[in-house]
Structure formats: C-alpha cells, structure tokens
Design a protein around this nucleic acid. Structure first.
Length: 800
RNA sequence: GCUCGAGUGGCGGAAUAGGUAGACGCAGGGGACUUAAAAUCCCCCGGCCCAUAAAGCCGUACCGGUUCGAUUCCGGUCCCGAGCACCA
C-alpha cells in the first residue's frame, strides 16, 4: 500500500482541528512552555517556503514538548498593518480591510495545509479593532508617563512612499519599503523616548538566553560609550561650549573644536560671527545631502572656520579656533567635539586639510604620518605627564576637571529616540487631540478604540499628510479636557507598534477588559523560546523589549524581560542561490510543494536542507531525498513483526537515535537529527524487519517532523493517537556498543583498526595493537619511542 | 574603516574539552527487476599512482607554529557573508 498523502494529510489536519489536540490550557497542572514564532505579515503573494522553515523549528520543539508532558502555547497571528496592503488598495481601489482579510485567509489555508500545531483559537490580527484598541491603550500609557513627545527635526522622508521614516527604516539612505533614495526634511513628528530605556535594555541582556551574536547586535545597536562631558568656554561672550569625548586624557592635545552645522550656538551669536553668510551657505549645502551621502564622504572632510568665536581650553587656557563641519552630528553627544588631531583619525584628516597644529600628547606613534590611537606615555600634558596608560590618565583628568568644575564623567548611547508615526492610512490612529487651549490631549481610555474612519481614497496628500487629514468628520472634534473645538491627530502608528506587544495578547487573546488578564500573564510569561529572522533582532526585538519593560515598570506585566530565549533561522534562498524575491521569479510556493510531495516531505526537507541557522538554497532534487526517506519509513510497515521488546540487533541503534534526536532538537540541529533517523531506517532495512516496540519508538521521534504519516501509521497499526503518546526515553547504558572499533596509528598516521571490548583500558589497547600483524610488519626493525592510548578512540605508536 | 561569523568532495552539508575527515542526502557510475520506462532494491563514488585491487602519497582557503597527533589550538595572509558605519 502506498502512502496517499492527499487523503491522509487532510484527514489528520481535520482530526487535530476537531479534537483541539494542540489547544493550550490556561490553567493546567502541567509545566507550561510558551514557544513564539514571529507572526507573518500577510502579503498578497502568500507565504513562501522561507516562512515554513521559520515556523518549522519551534513547531518540532512544540510537538516534542507536548509529548514530554508540557502544556504548550504555540500561537499564530498576523501583523497586518503595513504599506504593501495600502499600496494594493491604492492601486485596486479595494479597501485595505478586504485586502487584509483575503490575505489572512490565504495564509491560514497555507499554514493549515502544512499541519502546524498552532492553537487556532488564539489567532490575532493587529488590525482588528479589538486588538489595536490595546495598542492605543499602551501608547496612551506611555503618553501619560512622559515617554511620548513631539519634536521638529530633520527626518528621513521617502518621496516615493510620501512618508517619514525612522532611521531604522531608512538604513543605507534607501527606503526600507520601496528602496528609493531617502531625503532629509524638517517635520514635526512623534517620538517615543526609547533612549530613556537604553541602559535597562542593555542591562537586561545579562539575564536572557539569546544567541551570542544576537546579544552583540543589540549591544551595538544600543551603542553605549563611556567618556566625559567637558565645558569649553567662548572667549568673546563667556558662553559654555559643552562637548562629549571618550578620550578626556587627550585634552592637552586639543588644537581646534568642531560643532555640527545645526548647532544652536550659531543662531544665538549670529551677530558676532563675521562670516555668517559663509556658514549659512555651508549649512544649506549639508542639508541637501542625505544622511547617506554625509556618511559616505568619509575621505574628504569639509568645513568652515567660524570667524568671531574662539574657544578656550579649560585646562590650559589656550585659545583655539572653532569650525563647523558635517562630520560632527547634532544627534549624538552634544553636537560639538574637541578635536585632537594627533590621536584621532578624523580630526587628523581635518587638521591636515585646514593646516591646523597637531600636538602629540601620547608617545608611541609617528604623528607626522598618521594619528596614533594606541596607548602610551603621556607627554605635553601638564599634570598627566608620565602616566603610561589610558585608564589612569582618564581617571586623573576626570578628577582635575571635577575639581575645576568644568567637566564630569558621562555616558552616551548611539540609539536614538523612536520616530513613531507615519502619514498613512493603514495603521493604528494615534489617539491624541490637538486643542488650541490645552495643547496635546489624550483621547480618554474609555473612548478606545479610536477607529479608522472609512475614506474614499488612500493616496497620501502631496505634502506627506495622512489621508485621514482629508476626513473632516474625523479631524474635527471636541477637546476631551475643555470641550472646545479641537483637531484630531491624523498620523498613524508605524508597523512596529502592533508587533511590540503581540506576545502578551496571545496569553489572553479574547479579553475585552485588559490587553491580557494578570492571571494569564502570570501563568504564560515570559516567552520560553522565541525564534525568528536575524533581520528582526535589533529593531523589532528592541522595540518590543522597550514596550515590555515599560509595562513592567508600571506594573502591567509580571516579568522584566519578554523573551527568555531567542534563536534565529537562516533564509531559504532560491534554487539559483539568490535571496527569494518576486522580481527574480525564484520564489517557491509551499502549496506547490505540498501538491506534489505532501506536507510531511516539505517539513522534513526545510529542516534537512542545511544548518537551521544558515541560509541554504532550495533544491528540487534535494527534496526528493526526503520523499524517498518517508516512503521508506512507510514501507517499513510491510516489514513489521510482533514483539514488545526491542531486539538486540536494533536496540542500541534505536537508543542512540532517540538520544541523538532528543538532543539535536533542543540544539536546533534538525538536519543531523533527520540524518540519524535516515541512518536508522537504513539499519532496519539491513536487519530486514522491525517489531512493534522498535517501530513505536521510531515513529514517536519522527512524529514532530512528519506528523501526518506517523499519526496514520500509529493509529492504524497500534490504535492510538501518537500526538498523545509520551516522548520515548533512552537508556544511557543501551546507547553504547559492546564492542567498539579502535584505531591504530603509527606516528600519527592511521594504519589499522581493531574491534575491542568496550571497557578496554590503555594497557590492554596497547597490547592488542602490538599484536596486529600490520603493526608488527611496520615497526619491524624500528624502535618504539612512545605509545599513546586513548580508551574508546585510538592507539598511537611512535617509532624511530 | 570597525565588529562578528564563516571558508571541508561535483552540490547541500557532517565531525571540533585536539584523536578514524567527508555522517546523512543530492547528483553521477555500475548492476538486479522490467518487453520498456518510471519506481524500487543492491554496489561504487575526494585526488594522485594503477588494468583492478592492495600498498603508498596528497587532501578541510593559503603560509607558518605548538603537538605523538591539528578541519579543531596559536600567529600571519587571502577571500566570502552579516551587522554597524565620520558615534567624537
């Protein structure tokens, strides 16, 4: 009988659905396990096989955990706000709500066909008003706690999408969505004060189990640096010019200062600056460059000296010139630096170009050639002279600065506040009212959700305004505070909003009194294991950790961190080795694979194709190997013989395989887990038969990977539901062979092998090795210098 | 430029508290079954030498080192990938 996956797979999917086999109990005597995968954005194209790989990892873990006796929460949902949907709506005139619903339907159908063991009773949709009511609620809580503010600044603006983008969405100067060039524009935007949580986000990493490279990326993203703030003064007017530096030890080597073109001191002292026109021109020039261009022109430093303002070094009293240059950013530190050309490569370039003095204060390099950034003895540095290392020099200079009251130690973070709004329709409306008398006023909690009104066309306004601005009935409102005429905010939240707390909603998805009940959160949180793409380990993860930490601080969630453990899977590349994309036409649709091979083959293949954490190209022939494997597993039922005890000829192999698969799943080494099961099947074919006990154990460990086939075989042959059987245990004593092969080396080269009893000690091994005819022949006439024996492994005979 | 990760057969990839390199799979070759094909089953499959085998030699990006023994450890070089990117 052949394996008819077209009949068997839907049969079991229906069974699991109807019996709620994978339902997560809210209260259970069992230990809980919360497995989280990044919920997909339901695009019109449907899923590709990369989604299947991304979900299959924790799918296998979840199924194993249930068999191990855990109460498992393995939920699914849809992160459905976003530009592609809105763009489709603009193009086709179909409402984004309808587009989204259709896409979710398509995704759901695809997911169900693969047989994922999600709890389908907990599905969430970020665009559902019952969901985004709570997204707005959390936003208002942040507003209430002063974490929301508005500021007029230069923003990244995408002329094509007509939206303001966060730094994160415009990396490399390209719009994350449409990849066109981003330009700089001044605009009043909403911010979330994530920088207030910079240190907490950094410290929290100590208590979580993330892959080391994930932690590192987050640390780099937060970008903590320790240094000092130093107040220089301006000779002409006594104004303080405050700078940030990580090298206060080089303070005696300062020969000029540089401030950002936007630095407020220029405006403040316009009148006393002789060459203000030149500065204005330079500033205008910089404004035209995108951030990308600014950072690309690393080699060629530009700038203008400010005529009429002179800085004074607080330690030496020396007068030094001030320049403006775009290599200093307003957004980091204080927007002003002290320049030490002898010991900073950027300052060195600038000094060379502008003919500024270069004073060596640390010995060890050749400053006539390049800046020396290493350690060494301090010179030309007053009281610091003679100190030979950076740490001591910094300590000393900080003391001096503090005594003089002109500086102190300080820290800075690269992370910037989060620009939190978009001029788009398909997003959560920001629940704020602008009142001419009261200013920004929160929409009262009881009025949530603030619903998206219907609009006739989704095109953003030409000035980048949201389409909501055109809806008079939405915009005009009464101030909740004073009752006077007011205007509603028309911007919506960025797509990151809904995904910043979705893991909390899964704990209690239908609650209409709270985003989730305290009991549910207490029971399920934190997420025990979160897996997703590397592309989300900074933005999404840091944003959601921020939201979670805020909720923790106001007592709304029970854990300081949302995710106890985080791993990441590698991409599935197209058959051509390129990243899958619609434009390249190399996208593989899981539906097509399921049609031809069935879901189990697809599931096994995405996990077998390579190291789970690495990218691997899709291979049409590679998947055939997995089909053969499962066909051979199915065909084993023809070789089935009675027997409730494993037979000696297979017992060790099976125990070894159970051990291997059990460990490999935890380590996400799915490829080697499958390889070991393939090897076991090969061994069974050599034996020629398999008995009940042996087959049961094997089907159990294969079940998380190929649940449909194993469920069918188990129920037909043994009359039970395999998903409800316990995970097989291995006996350590049965994972070792009685006899093992030991290698004999001569001078480190493999010469012979021998079969010895498992417990043989060093002496026995050497004696046995010396008995080998091959060894005897080779060492004939030579002197044995030394013998090394490693029990269970090898004997090495060193001869001369 | 800086930080991190990696480099193993024709291909995807195994194996690192230093100890049989190439598990498992794909592709390829040979055979069995078949009128034939597909499917299935069995055998071979890093390179050189060789009729074949045995034996021997070479082989984990490259050069050198430590060691009885190095894919694994150390130093240097070259590539590839990811992230950050004038962060003071």
């Amino acid at each position: 009988m052949n394996y008819d996956f077209k009949a068997i797979e839907p049969k079991w999917q229906k069974y699991w659905d109807e019996h709620k086999t994978f339902h997560a109990e809210d209260n259970s005597g069992k230990p809980k396990f919360y497995a989280l995968i990044e919920f997909p954005y339901p695009s019109g194209a449907g899923m590709h096989v990369g989604h299947i790989k991304a979900f299959s990892g924790l799918e296998v873990v979840s199924r194993k955990r249930r068999m191990e006796g855990y109460n498992v929460l393995f939920p699914i949902g849809f992160d459905a706000y976003g530009l592609p949907t809105e763009n489709t709506a603009i193009k086709t005139g179909v409402h984004p709500r309808v587009v989204t619903d259709n896409n979710i339907k398509k995704f759901t159908q695809q997911l169900k066909r693969v047989g994922f063991s999600f709890d389908w009773d907990r599905v969430i949709d970020t665009t559902d008003e019952k969901y985004y009511k709570w997204t707005q609620w959390i936003f208002l809580k942040m507003f209430e706690h002063g974490l929301v503010f508005r500021d007029k600044t230069l923003v990244n603006y995408c002329p094509s999408c007509k939206v303001v983008l966060s730094n994160e969405d415009s990396q490399g100067g390209k719009c994350d969505i449409c990849h066109s060039d981003v330009v700089q524009r001044t605009k009043e935007v909403w911010y979330l004060r994530i920088t207030e949580y910079a240190d907490k986000l950094l410290q929290g990493l100590k208590d979580v189990d993330y892959l080391p490279n994930i932690k590192l990326q987050q640390e780099n993203w937060i970008g903590k640096s320790t240094g000092a703030f130093v107040n220089f003064s301006i000779k002409e007017n006594g104004e303080k010019l405050r700078i940030y530096t990580t090298r206060p030890d080089t303070l005696y080597g300062v020969t000029f200062m540089v401030i950002a073109p936007e630095h407020p001191i220029i405006e403040k002292y316009r009148e006393s600056i002789a060459n203000i026109a030149e500065l204005d021109a330079y500033k205008a020039e910089c404004g035209k460059k995108s951030e990308f261009e600014r950072t690309q022109l690393v080699k060629d430093k530009t700038g203008v000296r400010i005529q009429g303002l002179t800085a004074v070094n607080p330690l030496t009293g020396k007068e030094i010139p001030i320049y403006i240059s775009d290599y200093v950013m307003m957004g980091y530190g204080t927007g002003a630096i002290m320049a030490v050309p002898a010991h900073d490569t950027r300052d060195y370039e600038f000094a060379k170009k502008f003919g500024i003095d270069i004073i060596e204060v640390i010995k060890g390099g050749d400053i006539s050639v390049e800046a020396y950034t290493g350690d060494g003895e301090m010179v030309n540095s007053g009281e610091l002279n003679g100190i030979t290392n950076k740490k001591d020099a910094i300590e000393k200079v900080l003391k001096v600065l503090e005594e003089k009251g002109c500086g102190e130690a300080g820290v800075q973070y690269k992370m910037k506040d989060w620009a939190f709004n978009r001029q788009r329709y398909w997003g959560e409306p920001i629940p704020i009212v602008h009142c001419p008398h009261c200013g920004m006023v929160a929409v009262p909690y009881e009025e949530l959700p603030l619903r998206l009104p219907p609009v006739e066309n989704y095109e953003p306004g030409s000035d980048g305004e949201s389409p909501l601005a055109k809806i008079d009935s939405f915009v005009r409102c009464k101030c909740p505070k004073c009752g006077g005429d007011a205007r509603r905010e028309t911007d919506t939240m960025p797509q990151w909003a809904g995904s910043s707390w979705y893991f909390l909603r899964y704990c209690d998805p239908k609650n209409d009194k709270a985003f989730a009940s305290k009991e549910a959160l207490e029971y399920w949180m934190p997420v025990d294991w979160y897996n997703g793409g590397m592309e989300h380990v900074t933005r999404h993860m840091i944003y959601s950790r921020f939201w979670h930490k805020f909720l923790y601080d106001i007592g709304e969630v029970p854990t300081p961190e949302p995710y106890a453990k985080r791993t990441a899977q590698g991409l599935v590349l197209g058959p051509d080795g390129d990243k899958m994309s619609k434009s390249k036409g190399n996208v593989v649709d899981p539906n097509d694979v399921v049609d031809v091979y069935g879901a189990d083959v697809l599931r096994v293949y995405v996990l077998f194709m390579g190291d789970y954490e690495q990218a691997a190209p899709w291979s049409e022939s590679g998947i055939k190997g997995c089909k053969r494997f499962l066909d051979r597993v199915w065909a084993l039922s023809d070789k089935l013989i009675p027997g409730d005890e494993m037979r000696p000829e297979l017992e060790v192999a099976i125990h070894k395989t159970i051990k291997k698969v059990t460990g490999d799943i935890e380590a996400m080494k799915f490829n080697t887990a499958i390889a070991s099961m393939m090897a076991l099947v090969n061994a069974v074919y050599e034996v020629g038969s398999i008995n009940h006990a042996e087959y049961k154990a094997f089907l159990s460990i294969l079940n998380p990977f190929a649940p449909h086939m194993t469920e069918e075989l188990y129920s037909v042959l043994f009359g039970k539901i395999l998903s409800e059987q316990p995970w097989p245990k291995y006996d350590e004593t049965k994972t070792v062979d009685d006899e093992i092969t030991v290698v004999i080396q001569i001078n480190g080269k493999l010469k012979d092998k021998m079969l010895v009893p498992a417990g043989s000690d060093k002496e026995e091994l050497v004696k046995l090795a010396m008995n080998s005819d091959r060894v005897k022949a080779i060492i004939e006439g030579k002197t044995v210098v030394k013998t090394i024996a490693v029990p269970g492994k090898l004997v090495n005979i060193v001869v001369k």
